[in-house]
Design a protein around this nucleic acid. Structure first.
Lengths: 229, 229
DNA sequence: CAGTGTTAGATTGGATACAATATCCTGGCA
DNA sequence: TGCCAGGATATTGTATCCAATCTAACACTG
């Protein structure tokens, strides 16, 4: 069996409201990879993808190159592209990047946060409380974080942050499996929001760094054990 | 285990000569953009580039998509790609990212730095002393920083750091114009190296953050004034 | 039977030609 | 002047074709 079934569903659902075919293909594949709909290591055959998407090979190749630049696919010359592998060290890598970027984003954003932003973050926490589906949970978590960082006004920084929040989502089901993620994470979310509300930048930065760091550490340990076993 | 480590080194050094045409085009264009050989805002016409490189349009398009993913080019549907603009806010953006990432990279790398690494960093500082050419200066500066971060062992993080060191190079000639860059920066390099040599992680992290931050601040102020004038 | 050619098939990488489409520019017209 | 129709231009996407090369299976050799 190859890339598909699941992917075909995503293709069907994806809205044709993209500027170009290549971007439509890229966005759809990216989502499929990030959500795990296409497993790591899966070959991404051009002809097959072209047929699945109902397009020619060229936009597919452009999309694959973009995925490569985002570290979501790997190219092996004359052997084609495969979905980038996941690993304990990769998870640690992403965790380190998040621990570096997110406190900075928060620092830049905090002074400009509005009461509306804080209220929205509050709502997102509440929504997460009742959420069991990992995919939906990942999205809510991402929106919570991005809401707090959103006023930073540094588009490149924010794009990187979001990209790595998304990258972290590839590990979401392991995150859940690593146990205890949900409730402790929610406590940390609340503490973080409280610090933001109080305008305590130093505390907020520390909390977000710990929040990300602890999750990454748990996850990495879990994956290491899994790889060893 | 077999055909020894020595061979592995030779293989690794038997340098890539690009794997594909698309990668050759991408690397060349990237360098041209980063060094300023192609000015911001310049249209990147496919046909023209294809002819210049002596290739067809297909690898050119793949290369352009990769440049887009690296924020070095912007696509405007049906109007083509242009070299990404530079601005004071963009410089500040890159500065913020570097201030976040580089201390983290240094923290992870410092414990594993060898005396060879430190000696090489020393040499690079000495080389920079006698250097007047901005392009060469940028390369030496980049190598100095990457030498210190190189043992971090987090490939994604290091790739991001290098990418933004390169991105900063787009602003190099303004960096020089903003004055005082060279001598003060060299003092900071020496102080940073000393802290690394002493194994004082906290100080090293602080120094690198200040080093990056001050340069970015000066540069941003210079560009703001220039944009206003 | 391990190890080494050899060959066939599949897939990518790239070139070329052409059709479709969106943007910009310009010139005529109210 | 203002505007709008339409052509020039460029990009976007499709359809083929071909060369390079990777994989795998098989045959050969010692």
């Amino acid at each position: 069996m190859s890339a598909n079934a699941e992917l075909a569903r995503l293709v069907a659902r994806a809205q044709p409201r993209f500027r170009t075919t290549a971007e439509f293909v890229e966005a759809t594949l990216r989502e499929a990879i990030l959500t795990g709909a296409i497993a790591p290591g899966t070959p991404l055959r051009q002809e097959e993808l072209a047929e699945t998407f109902g397009v020619s090979r060229m936009p597919v190749r452009e999309a694959l190159r973009q995925l490569e630049a985002r570290a979501l696919a790997e190219f092996h010359p004359h052997r084609g592209a495969v979905v980038a592998e996941i690993s304990a060290t990769d998870a640690a890598d992403i965790g380190a990047i998040r621990m570096a970027l997110e406190p900075m984003a928060l620092r830049l954003s905090l002074p400009s946060l509005t009461t509306d932003d804080l209220a929205q973050a509050d709502e997102l926490i509440a929504e997460m409380d009742g959420e069991a589906d990992p995919g939906r949970m990942g999205e809510l978590n991402r929106r919570f974080h991005m809401t707090l960082y959103g006023r930073a006004g540094h588009p490149r920084l924010l794009a990187l942050v979001e990209q790595h929040l998304l990258a972290a989502d590839r590990y979401l089901r392991f995150q859940f499996a690593a146990l205890g993620y949900h409730p402790r994470s929610q406590d940390e979310h609340r503490a973080l929001l409280a610090a933001c509300r109080a305008g305590d930048g130093a505390a907020a930065e520390r909390l977000v760094m710990e929040h990300v760091g602890e999750a990454a550490e748990q996850l990495t340990a879990f994956l290491k054990e899994r790889e060893a076993g």
